[in-house]
């Protein structure tokens, strides 16, 4: 039984079919990498799951609940956290405040007027800081962080939400080699306690972290399996990886 199931999902933008009868099952406590050439519909799939866009047809089921077409905040409250392709942090707030805002156990505005430091915040903050190593940057304005730190901050924000599933769009884009190595460590620790879907182009990175690799092409599922199986698949080599012999 999958924690997240996508059934026959389709999405078209003014006649252009971007997602075409795409189905996927995500098993609990696995890290699934979503790969594919540009325009394959990876980010759109993320948008459809997280509610940023509404599917034209099909169904998205999360823990046996139909979440198709719900608002972004409703989907987030059910435990689906999202990191964006272009890191989206609150640039004029400090790292600490970014993480505090993301701690969204209580979302009612009136109850949030009553307290400054909600229960459980401190423990969660320590946990996330330990994982992301941002402890020394707590009071820094997020806008002046380096690119890698910004990526980690956004991953940290998703973790503060305490989600059951993390959707991470290109988490290592623009990172240096050593930053990528650090991120690999973070992800391999995360997948022991969380379910993750990661969109990524960097195949070396995918090889290090993925339990399952899903290849998309032209809005449909092209292949799925372990990294070895996928890399051996001639269709995948054809449209995406290229022939290693070349």
């Amino acid at each position: 039984m999958g924690v997240l199931e996508i059934h026959h999902l389709s999405k078209n933008f003014g006649g252009t079919q971007v997602i075409n009868d795409f189905s996927l099952k995500i098993t609990e406590l696995t890290l699934c990498c979503l790969v594919g050439p540009n325009g394959a519909g990876k980010t759109t799939t993320m948008d459809l799951i997280s509610g940023r866009q509404k599917p034209s047809s099909g169904q998205i089921v999360f823990r046996n609940d139909d979440i198709t077409g719900l608002g972004e905040h409703e989907i987030a409250r059910r435990g689906i956290g999202r990191k964006f392709q272009v890191p989206a942090v609150f640039r004029d707030l400090s790292v600490r405040h970014n993480l505090e805002v993301a701690f969204s156990r209580e979302t009612n505005p009136f109850r949030n007027m009553m307290h400054r430091k909600p229960k459980g915040l401190r423990e969660k903050l320590d946990e996330v800081l330990q994982l992301t190593g941002l402890g020394s940057r707590l009071e820094t304005e997020a806008g002046v962080l380096s690119h890698g730190e910004t990526q980690w901050l956004e991953i940290g924000m998703v973790l503060m939400q305490n989600p059951s599933i993390l959707l991470l769009d290109e988490p290592v884009a623009g990172m240096t080699e050593s930053e990528i190595e650090n991120t690999i460590k973070i992800f391999n620790r995360l997948k022991k306690t969380n379910t993750l879907i990661v969109v990524e182009h960097d195949m070396a990175f995918v090889r290090e972290i993925a339990d399952v690799v899903t290849v998309m092409h032209m809005g449909s599922l092209l292949a799925q399996g372990t990294i070895g199986e996928v890399e051996a698949d001639p269709r995948v080599r054809d449209v995406y990886l290229g022939d290693p012999e070349d």
Binding site: G71, A76, F84, V89, F90, D92, L93, S104, T107, Q161
Partner: peptide, 14 residues
Amino acid sequence: QALRGDPERVRFLG
């Protein structure tokens, strides 16, 4: 103060 800068992002926090 967070949504002042990026309301879209705040929605995805719930």
